[in-house]
């Protein structure tokens, strides 16, 4: 057991921004978390490695972030006690920013819980992790298009090598609440982006 591991319902730090890492099991949340905070969350190659939360901090652009690595979950209707921890953390941190972590080789699976989080109106940022594995499997994810559709920052990362982690850290401050209605419209091809486009392509990053 590492010391970073805050147990049970320990108080969450009040200073700075709290960032909850959320996503399916075994998509590399703990690996990303370790990369960003230098902490020692246990990383393995099987779903369900993280069954409790771990928190750590990092400073980016003069701003302190407290990142919390929570157990992976397939949806916000918990299936087991580990998923319950994740859902409880989300419920107990209404002011948190949510970093949704997707596995680039299984984007669809992770997007389900991503949409559930977005429906809750919490500020989000998306990390499409495991880009190296996707590359090997000849799967490409159009990050810019995903960002345009979702209207929140999307960053591609490979936690094992550290690629994109810097970007992810910088983009955290641009996390924003997704407009789920607008996403549905964009998907139907009804572009109603007059406000956000402003001649920049509407990447959602600003």
């Amino acid at each position: 057991m590492t010391e970073e591991k805050a147990k049970g319902n320990a108080d969450l730090p009040e200073k700075g921004t709290t960032v909850l890492m959320l996503g399916n099991p075994n998509v590399g949340k703990s690996a990303l978390f370790n990369r960003m905070t230098g902490a020692n969350a246990i990383v393995s190659n099987y779903p369900g490695t993280t069954v409790d939360f771990t928190s750590g901090t990092f400073i980016e652009g003069g701003h302190t972030y407290t990142i919390i690595d929570v157990p992976g979950t397939y949806s916000l209707e918990p299936r087991d006690a580990a998923e319950e921890v994740a859902v409880r953390m989300l419920r107990d941190s209404p002011d948190a920013t949510v970093m949704i972590v997707l596995d680039a080789t299984k984007t669809d699976r992770g997007l389900y819980v991503a949409l559930e989080v977005m429906e809750r109106g919490m500020p989000c940022i998306v990390a499409v992790n495991m880009m190296d594995a996707a590359h090997e499997k000849k799967i490409t994810v159009d990050i810019a298009e995903l960002q345009r559709i979702l209207g929140v920052p999307v960053v591609s990362t490979t936690a094992t090598s550290g690629e994109g982690v810097r970007d992810l850290a910088e983009m955290l401050r641009k996390a924003k609440v997704a407009d789920i209605g607008a996403i549905a419209q964009r998907l139907r091809g009804e572009e109603q982006e007059r406000e956000s486009v402003r001649g920049c392509g509407g990447c959602g990053g600003c």
Partner: peptide, 14 residues
Amino acid sequence: MVDAITRQTVTYGT
């Protein structure tokens, strides 16, 4: 929605 999003963003090579 997930289907629609992946259709527009993910491509699978051989």
